[in-house]
């Protein structure tokens, strides 16, 4: 049954800043991507040693999900199988593919090779949060709000999921942007409706 769904929270990490629900929580201008992502991790006092071995796409997606869910997600309302992740980007894992390719002529590195798949960032988010539901990684030329809404609506309307983290996470060199949305069927106080227009507008604000 099609019912309304709501954006319980949103988070964007881009342009050396972290923005959650429209509020800038942290800025660190002038740093390169690696230093910036580390500074985000430190600023929020995260303690998750696996973070250090992730590639930049993994770090970006993991941090965005972590801040998205922080204080705003009553995960115990759901079974692990009821929570899913739908992500999109345009460059797949190319940022890390280039790094892996550089190791081939010397000794190919299994720990770098494992990140040569875009859906590994979904795996990282699922491991961290014990999310076991449906997930998918789509490659798209640009952020496609209508497509994401269609996919997520199907999963929630058919009760395949009850909550879904969805959005965009893309890294290539120093260019990066992640915008994630927490979509639920229940409406929190100020939650916006989950609609293509609303997620497109939030994505394009930053």
């Amino acid at each position: 049954m099609a019912t309304n769904k709501y954006l319980s929270s949103t988070c964007t990490i881009a342009k050396n800043a972290v923005n959650k629900n429209g509020i800038t929580l942290f800025k660190n201008p002038g740093t390169d991507i690696t230093a910036f992502l580390l500074s985000v991790y430190q600023h929020f006092h995260f303690n998750y040693p696996k973070f250090y071995k992730m590639d930049n796409l993994g770090k970006l997606g993991w941090l965005t999900a972590e801040i998205l869910l922080k204080d705003d997600f009553e995960r115990f309302n759901y079974e692990p199988e009821e929570i899913g992740v739908v992500l999109t980007n345009s460059n797949s894992s190319l940022d890390n593919d280039l790094k892996y390719f550089d190791t081939i002529s010397d000794i190919p590195s299994p720990s770098v090779f494992v990140y040569t798949l875009p859906n590994i960032v979904i795996g990282e988010i699922c491991i961290r949060n014990n999310f076991k539901g449906e997930h998918a990684f789509f490659i798209q030329e640009k952020f496609d709000a209508a497509f994401i809404a269609q996919q997520v609506n199907y999963l929630l309307d058919n009760d395949i999921l009850q909550a879904c983290i969805c959005g965009w996470a893309d890294v290539l060199g120093q260019d990066y942007k992640a915008t994630l949305f927490l979509v639920e069927k229940k409406k929190n106080e100020q939650a916006l409706l989950f609609s293509p227009e609303n997620i497109d507008s939030i994505f394009n604000t930053i």
Binding site: C126, I127, F131, K132, A136, I160
Partner: peptide, 22 residues
């Protein structure tokens, strides 16, 4: 059809098979 995640390890399959069974 259905898709699931083990939420266990990025490069190793789950030991129990619970994710695929789901």
């Amino acid at each position: 059809g259905s898709v699931s995640n083990d939420a266990n390890h990025i490069s190793g399959p789950s030991r129990t098979g619970a994710g695929l069974a789901q």
